[in-house]
């Protein structure tokens, strides 16, 4: 028996919007720790890792570890039928081939049940090493989204270079080039607007902008985004979900031939 009740149903809606363009089908893993997912995009260039910890749910019952295969587009469609302020409950009986999404409006006078078929998905988890990254940048999530969107109008890839002073995003295309530098900030009164750089070593890596633009669908989940890079690893873009966990995107770099 699985029963997960989340007071902020809007959060689950945002989570699905943040994953559905990257991944078609994925297994959600439910354990006493929480509700999680790990999946790659079809070309195996990007990986998304989601964790919603059990403590973040108003009610969390998961009698045994279960893996439920879902089509993320269909799940997103069903969740779009929930109001942003609705309470969302996920329910599944042991061995059932479907999951029920129950939506309750804040005044509790409208209750909706949506039942979705589960799928058998053959997927293997990858071991993500616990790495110390050479450069970590924390910046406003909306600013990062804006930069990725702007640069993708000029070029297909972005060179991200981190130094002690700041982070530089550069691209080039048929019409010309673009460079955006975000300097490290030192203000303390508005931490959500800060650009913070923790650098062990300067890093410069190239990434495909279309994946970064897909990751920025998670922007409504967090005010800040953390970008971690090392020269020999995929980058990690993390959006922390307050009180619940995180959504992390791993992106393999472009490598010089």
């Amino acid at each position: 028996m699985l029963e997960l009740r989340l007071l902020q149903g809007g959060l689950l809606k945002k989570v699905l919007e943040a994953m559905k363009d990257l991944v078609n089908d994925a297994n959600f893993d439910c354990s006493p720790t929480g509700f999680s997912l790990q999946a790659m995009d079809s070309s195996h260039v990007a990986l998304v890792s989601l964790l919603l910890r059990s403590e973040g749910f108003e009610h969390y019952r998961c009698d045994r570890n279960v893996s439920m295969g879902m089509n993320l587009n269909n799940m997103a469609k069903m969740l779009r039928c929930a109001g942003n302020d609705d309470i969302v409950t996920l329910k599944a009986d042991d061995g059932s081939d479907c999951i029920t999404f129950m939506f309750e409006n804040p005044s509790q006078d409208k209750i909706a049940d949506f039942e979705m078929k589960l799928m058998d998905i053959d997927s293997e988890h990858l071991g993500i090493p616990d790495a110390e990254y050479q450069s970590i940048v924390r910046m406003p999530a909306a600013e990062f989204a804006r930069i990725c969107r702007d640069l993708s109008t000029i070029g297909d890839t972005v060179l991200i270079s981190v130094s002690k002073e700041g982070v530089q995003f550069s691209t080039r295309g048929d019409m010309g080039t673009a460079n955006i530098v975000c300097r490290r900030t030192t203000t303390v009164d508005k931490p959500e607007e800060d650009v913070i750089i923790e650098m062990e070593e300067p890093v410069s890596l190239t990434f495909a902008l279309r994946y970064l633009n897909s990751f920025t669908k998670a922007t409504p989940l967090a005010t800040q985004v953390t970008i971690s890079m090392s020269s020999d690893l995929p980058m990690v873009i993390e959006y922390r979900i307050e009180g619940m966990g995180y959504i992390r995107y791993y992106l393999a770099p472009k490598i010089d031939e």
Partner: peptide, 14 residues
């Protein structure tokens, strides 16, 4: 030119 690498080049099966 540059070539797109894949996640599986870096992360193995758990």
């Amino acid at each position: 030119g540059s070539k797109q690498s894949t996640i599986t080049k870096f992360f193995g099966k758990a």
